[in-house]
Write a protein that binds this DNA or RNA. Structure first.
Length: 185
DNA sequence: CCTCCGATGTGCT
DNA sequence: GCACATCGGAGGC
């Protein structure tokens, strides 16, 4: 059986399917519980927008077993992904936005003066609200992710944001109408 | 070793 | 719409 066995959420399924399935899931990290509202799927060698289009020290984690945390740095921010797919295949789901359901005070401390709905809006802001750092790379999320409990979410999709290659894939997914979801540029 | 640039966000024009 | 912070990673030499 898979390293990460979550009811109703098969992390070894195709990455775009997992990205959809993670909407409404809850992630607990560094004192904050986040309900995920926006994700993006990234694959391996066949995805020119993915860090794993080439296998390097940075992307190595994406080739590992599902359920691990992949953290990368972009400019002044840290972004978090959940590794998916069988061990040996490269794919991950970028966490783009969420709603802070617990640990609100802590998240506010990390992002002073920011409206509640915007605390984890955008991957960099989400990482900050969760207190992510490169040291979190490789964290086993097995006991830290709870699959969605409320089925029937209205899910929308569109092109991924901020990439210059493989822009034809509609691999960004979000909960329609949720105020925490980020806007395309 | 060196140069270029980014799965971002904010602030200013 | 555009500049820019800020530094690790990727790739060139």
């Amino acid at each position: 059986m898979a390293a990460l066995d979550l009811p109703g959420l098969d992390l070894e399924a195709p990455v775009e399917q997992v990205a959809r399935g993670l909407l409404g899931a809850r992630l607990t990290l560094h004192g904050v519980v986040l309900r995920i509202t926006e994700t993006e799927a990234y694959a391996g060698a066949d995805d020119d927008a993915s860090h794993a289009r080439v296998r390097t020290a940075r992307s190595e984690i994406m080739f590992g077993p599902p359920g691990l945390l992949y953290v990368y740095r972009i400019h002044t921010h840290h972004c978090g992904n959940i590794v998916t797919g069988p061990d040996g295949s490269a794919s991950a789901v970028l966490l783009r936005a969420g709603v802070v359901e617990s640990g609100l005070e802590l998240a506010r401390t990390r992002r002073p003066g920011v409206a509640e709905a915007a605390l984890a809006r955008g991957p960099g802001n989400l990482g900050r609200a969760l207190g992510l750092s490169l040291g979190d790379n490789g964290t086993d999320l097995t006991d830290l992710v709870e699959p969605p409990t409320a089925p029937g979410l209205l899910i929308a999709s569109g092109p991924r944001i901020g990439i210059s290659r493989a822009t034809d894939r509609r691999w960004r997914f979000w909960v329609e109408g949720d105020s925490s979801v980020s806007r395309p540029r």
